[in-house]
Design a protein around this nucleic acid. Structure first.
Lengths: 311, 311
DNA sequence: TAAAAATACTCCATAGGTATTTTAT
DNA sequence: ATAAAATACCTATGGAGTATTTTTA
């Protein structure tokens, strides 16, 4: 015979009632089958759990020991069933979210995570930072649920790219650079495209993919301007590190001003330069995980009518 | 439907095999009933545990969460069954033992407990100190398994009183007492019965029961000697405290020399005085607890041919 | 002797088996 | 086209019900 939870439930009822007949009534079964099940359990365990006397059944010493064990296991399964009920509702589970460096820099990110944590405390958030290409790939592979990134790279079928906002792009220059002499705001602050002529430019590489930097180069080419590309890096953070070190200038989404705020000068681009940085939320259209739906809804409602000006 | 351990066992097999058919083979059942049981479980929990695809079944995210829970519970029941197997063998359990103060003073007591602990590490010893009357009563009431005491008080049916040893009785006197001037050993060390004439005597009270002190008084009466009983106390420890304080003299089992060794003088009784203190082990004859049997056996074999001279 | 548990026996619910269909790649 | 899971249906184990006997204080 294999032991089943039924045996534990029956045992517990008898132990608590101290009475086979009363326990049977409480369990909505008759006395004889209960008697048999208890006997089968005793037989399985190889110990007498009860001492039978004229007016009921009392736990033996082995029975007392078993009572503790049985209670522990039944409590444990009850907790499990409650947890799974919350999993079924979607309010418990795990949610894996990734960000590109520049997406993580946008204030929207921590804001929305804090909101989510508060609303769904039983959903364990697994956060990571990675390149846009890896994030996209891992979402398609069900390794991640959601991703925040700038310009979509590759468009695997079944993935939704939802543009949450578009924000201006700023020129980042070393503090001792010519462009850093411009005022921070006002008409004269703006950097024109011709300012890029022969300028040392640091780009974030995107193996053949369109992106902020490809767009910038296209604009330059359109107007016959030739910047001097001195470095191609993987991450936007490296980008700014090099600018801070004086290796050249670059462009970054406005929200990256927070990064290297004291060691890099940020200036706006001229009105005529139509270059902006989107922030996209990526997820699988067919993701059945309730948590993903909750997260997408929360992000969407948080950014509704938000053009990113706050960042 | 009520969830049973069977569901967890089946789920675990499928999760580990990643394959319904293979899991069924491993469980020695056919594939269709396994399919049904898994479906019933999913239905009960309200979540999909597996994603079905052409070559097997893969856990969903809820399934992964459930896997942890199911493993925990099955491990827990396995541990329980192992523990109960040891309970069945008698090598696991609880054993409640009590001592009177003077029985606890005998070196046999710690020696036998240390031995038992080493041989049955999974039997939890519950030790207590109490009067002989209470110990006897609580053993009869199944509150205790074994007791160590001196002279049996009351003889409830079903209790076995096994005399382990008999040891000499010593006279205990204050350090500045006349009897304390006697040499510690040799012929002149012995205290005669006439030395008790008009002496302040402290007794351990035994509501009408025979005991060491009743025997002493009987001996005195026999020879026409009248000691002056100045105090009747509950415990032998109180007894010695009063002797140490100079309130009078008393008699105690030889093994009590350890107690108040520096503050009380101990002298032997004369050869003609047939007064000795037994050490008894008490237990229920019908005690079915294996641990009790083990303990009684251990105590018996430890004291075989031992007349208490070592203490 | 009275109350409760155990036994004997029957019944039926359902776990499990057999045959076939459906599904997914 | 093929491997695997689901469905349909049947079988039979054993859990549960009914009637009665045995046990225990």
């Amino acid at each position: 015979m294999d032991m089943e939870l039924r045996h534990l439930r029956y045992f517990l009822a008898v132990a608590e009632a101290g009475h086979l007949t009363r326990a049977a009534a409480r369990l909505n079964i008759q006395q004889p089958p209960l008697s048999q099940q208890i006997k089968a359990l005793e037989n399985h365990l190889g110990v007498a759990l009860f001492r039978r006397h004229a007016k009921g059944m009392a736990l033996t010493e082995s029975g007392e020991l078993f009572l503790e064990e049985a209670r522990r296991i039944l409590d444990s399964t009850a907790v499990m069933e409650q947890r799974m009920a919350r999993v079924a509702q979607g309010v418990r589970g795990r949610l894996a979210i990734a960000f590109t460096t520049s997406a993580a820099a946008h204030l929207l990110t921590p804001r929305v995570l804090r909101l989510f944590r508060g609303r769904y405390p039983e959903i364990e958030l697994s956060l990571s930072e990675n390149s846009a290409a890896e994030i996209t790939e891992r979402i398609a592979a069900r390794d991640l649920h959601c991703g925040f990134l700038r310009v979509p790279v590759g468009r695997p079928p079944g993935l939704v790219f939802r543009t949450l906002l578009k924000e201006p792009v700023l020129v980042a220059a070393p503090l001792d650079h010519r462009l850093a002499q411009k005022p921070r705001t006002g008409k004269n602050a703006a950097v024109a495209l011709k300012d890029f002529q022969d300028e040392n430019l640091i780009l974030v590489r995107r193996a053949g993919a369109p992106g902020l930097y490809a767009n910038l180069l296209a604009l330059c080419a359109e107007r016959g301007i030739c910047p001097n590309v001195v470095a191609e890096v993987e991450r936007m953070m490296t980008n700014l590190n090099l600018v801070a070190a004086g290796a050249g200038i670059s462009v970054v989404p406005a929200s990256m001003q927070q990064v290297h705020a004291k060691t890099v000068a940020y200036r706006p681009l001229g009105k005529s330069i139509h270059l902006n940085a989107p922030l996209n939320l990526v997820y699988r259209a067919a993701d059945e995980t309730a948590a993903t739906g909750f997260f997408v809804d929360l992000v969407t409602s948080t950014t509704a009518g938000d053009d990113g000006a706050r960042s």
